[in-house]
Nucleic acid binder design. Structure first.
Lengths: 333, 333
DNA sequence: TTGTATGCGTTATCAG
DNA sequence: CTGATAACGCATACAA
């Protein structure tokens, strides 16, 4: 199983065997063949641990995402992201460790649950920070582990890849306004930088349109859930909203359900725009207008940025991916 | 950064430092404190490579899933699975490597793209086999790497955790029949063991109900896609089907879209039942009746089985998880 | 309670 | 073109 064994089988030295296998120095054709066939016979597989120990490289990175156990749906966004990361990993022959943490685990629990960080192991890490993870991010930086933030920005000193959440929501608000909507409600999360940016986009667009920001139309929650989405939508209907911006793919489902349960006509009585884009959104009635994020690309690009860092490049990159409005029918005419 | 350094700092031996850190033998309170504080000062993190090399254990497993790049939706099922696996991993302090392969990559390409298998590294592996991966599975077995199959069964010698696909589909057919449906169409995949089992369930239920299996009502495809789902549904409408069983969460979306586009009344003109259960399925109109799989549990359980194997238990376990009908409205009355 | 010393499987250096 | 050997950082058997 080891180089040593193959060396014994072939009568060559460990060094020659290693070089023959890796093509890292000239080896006679004769020796090469002997080594290769012996390796095949015993089913030789290199021992990564030894290689890592020697080279100080694991060819492995980790991605650490929040996993809200009572809201599994939010994770689908990260699935697309992970597939994007995987694509880059495949191209570069890296392996990917997927780790999770509980975003509601409190300050000290938030990120470090990822034991992968506490061990000298991965070459780099992609992190989706929570609002409590500044300290962990700092410690990652201090231990010299290459990293890139993703989806959410938590500070100015880190490389980061996010969506243009602010613009995405602002676009949606403008679309509502263009359709004659005047009382636009906002359902969002306040627990993450992402949520805050979306809220900021809402306020900004309102201001730009000279529309007042009515507190009764703004419903912020610490976390996302279907039930919470329903609840908020009910509240907004009572307040006389004629449009709802649900800044998250879970909330929008709840909101939609509540609207339908109440028998509201969409979009005549009340318009609705959601976040993220899945095929099913075109399948509900009316088909949902939504703010699309480039999830797969986000994964691919954040992996690319990390790879660049692993290559020794020192620049800090802040990449903001554009969102796009997927205009279907739920927003109005 | 290493035990050696801490040994130097504290004036103790490497052995004592190691034991103090790991609590693996008695150490005087005095020494312990010295070691711990020194470790904290220099930010000591154990070097996994060295530990792995020494102990021949990585505390890491891998899961290898098919990733159909032109059908990202299918992946969401595996996201739920992965979260289930993660839960077990969290409990047992293992890390999880997520690897993918192209299910349409042809025979030789199918599984081995997962380089993780070609390296002596992970302690065990969870594999979703494709119909072409028997050889790879055999080679995994031959190299003595503990493994468990998941979602699909490819042979009789491997431990395996799957859903009861056959029964799930049969239940759906019976429900259709109970609602007076007589010409029940089947849209399915033939490219995987999963698809074949679902098809078998369809035939079995039909036979049990003394209903003929009309070839014109059976549409099998090598792979899943939204477009293909639409196409099949159109065909089935032409053939006069009064019900459609779409044995996959992507196909059912396509089928639903086609039905709506054609202005069919659901479920009066034509009923439809899908596979897998997502929140959005309750949000379309009419709410979709579907065959639910226990995705999260499947992940948790398959991880459990693998852990058992890693613990040295030699039994082969074949676990079949029950499916359940989520009865909403699209099937009929 | 502590220390010494070995070896895990590689890569890479240095010497032939 | 080839070989001997050191070192990577750790766990642990053995000795004291």
């Amino acid at each position: 199983m080891s180089l040593k064994k193959i060396a014994e089988m072939t009568g060559l030295s460990i060094a020659t065997v290693s070089h023959a296998l890796n093509g890292t120095r000239a080896v006679s054709e004769d020796s090469r063949e002997k080594v290769l066939s012996a390796a095949k016979v015993v089913g030789y597989r290199p021992n990564m641990a030894a290689r890592m120990l020697r080279t100080q490289k694991s060819n492995t990175i980790a991605i650490i995402i929040p996993s809200d156990t009572n809201n599994m749906n939010a994770n689908y966004f990260y699935m697309d992201v992970i597939m994007g990361v995987r694509k880059k990993m495949f191209e570069t022959q890296y392996e990917l460790i997927v780790s999770t943490y509980d975003p509601h685990g409190g300050v000290q629990q938030s990120l470090p649950s990822a034991q992968v960080l506490r061990q000298h192991w991965v070459d780099g890490v992609i992190v989706v920070p929570s609002s409590h993870s500044q300290r962990q991010i700092r410690s990652i930086r201090e231990m010299g582990l290459p990293y890139v933030l993703m989806d959410r920005r938590s500070d100015d000193e880190s490389s980061c890849v996010t969506s243009n959440n602010k613009k995405g929501v602002a676009d949606a608000v403008r679309l509502f306004a263009a359709c004659g909507k005047r009382r636009i409600g906002f359902i969002g999360g306040i627990g993450s930088a992402t949520g805050q940016q979306r809220y900021a986009g809402y306020l900004e667009a309102l201001a730009e349109l000279n529309m007042p920001a009515d507190e009764a139309l703004i419903l912020l929650s610490p976390s996302y859930s279907l039930a919470r989405g329903e609840e908020c939508a009910v509240r907004l209907m009572e307040t006389g909203a004629d449009a709802i911006l649900a800044a998250d793919n879970v909330m929008v489902m709840g909101a939609l359900r509540a609207l339908k349960a109440a028998g509201a006509r969409i979009p005549e009585d009340i318009g609705i725009i959601g976040f993220d884009d899945y095929d099913w959104m075109g399948m509900v009635s009316p088909p949902l207008t939504t703010v699309r994020q480039q999830a797969f690309q986000m994964g691919y690009i954040v992996a690319e940025v990390l790879m660049r860092k692993l290559g020794g490049i020192k620049t800090n990159e802040v990449i903001v991916l554009d969102t796009s409005l997927v205009v279907r029918q739920s927003h109005g005419w």
